[in-house]
Design a protein around this nucleic acid. Sequence first.
DNA 1: TTCCAGGTATTAC
DNA 2: GTAATACATGGA
Length: 328
Amino acid sequence: MKSSRNCRRLLPTRDYHLAATLDSGQSFAWTHVGDAWEGVIQQRWVRLQQVPGGIEATVTWPEPTVAYGRACLPPSANADRHPCLVHTPGPAVRAGPAPPSADWSALTDYLQTEVELPAILATFPPDPPLLEAARCCGGLRILRQDPWECLASFLLSATKQIVQIRQVVANLCRRFGSPVTVPPDHPPAFAFPPAHTIANTTESDLRQCRMGFRARHLHEAARRIVGGDLNLLALRTLPLEEARAQLLKLPGIGPKIADCVLLFSGDQPRAFPIDVWVARALRHYYFAGQRVPAEELRRFAATHFGPWAGHAQQFLFHYARHHVRLTD
DNA sequence: TTCCAGGTATTAC
DNA sequence: GTAATACATGGA
């Protein structure tokens, strides 16, 4: 086994509920291990644990060290439009040995620890169900994920339970992802496979990961992205409607998955994914439980919840799943 | 066994 | 235009 060394740091946070955030159906890449969460961020194994004052993060470096890529995602091009976002892009990327004091900004950027949640809550309309949902799910955050991993994961999410999506994503990483350095005696961990890897495999191979009919969509989407039909990072610089229109051109991506990608990885805080849970909550709380066409729900959500509608959506989603029993 | 899952695309009225 | 239906798989 290759030797490795751990590096640990406290990431200071306020109003941050790590478990709610990592286990709220935004990302399917985290495993609950004891009282911590383990996953892979940008090719690096990470362990996160909520502690007083913040999040204790442990990462592992290989020894001897290897060159590694971008230390952090580019800062949000939309940051100026959204004063609640405070990005700290970190120093220039180093290649070669990674010292223990290496850049943590990739992690804080992913976790969005710098976002002032109270400032976002202050923009919400004063309606009782939303405020109750926000109260029940205090500290629930929106992650800033890698766009390709987010898109691919949600392509796999169609009519699947969250636990099953996790399994399929794990299958995909195990079969096609690169192994990452883990602590001694730790089970192997794998990075999410890049688009070109998926594009270069076959639909039949993808089906081995138990993703069913979604294999064709994933394969074709990867091929188009690798072919340059769509620049995922550039979506962060576009107005919401334009970014959504670009995503809707991909096979297997409709309004719901497009909004998930835009909210969870595309710097589009107004994006408002409406799935079965959110639709149920909207009908129940805002339309007296009546049947409402999907388009009308979308129109309502686009105007009612304000500039941080996506956060409101995530509160309603979490609330509907864990705190109340709503019927269709 | 039957139902349903963080949907989408296609086909039928 | 809106309403059903197929699509794979497996947990509840």
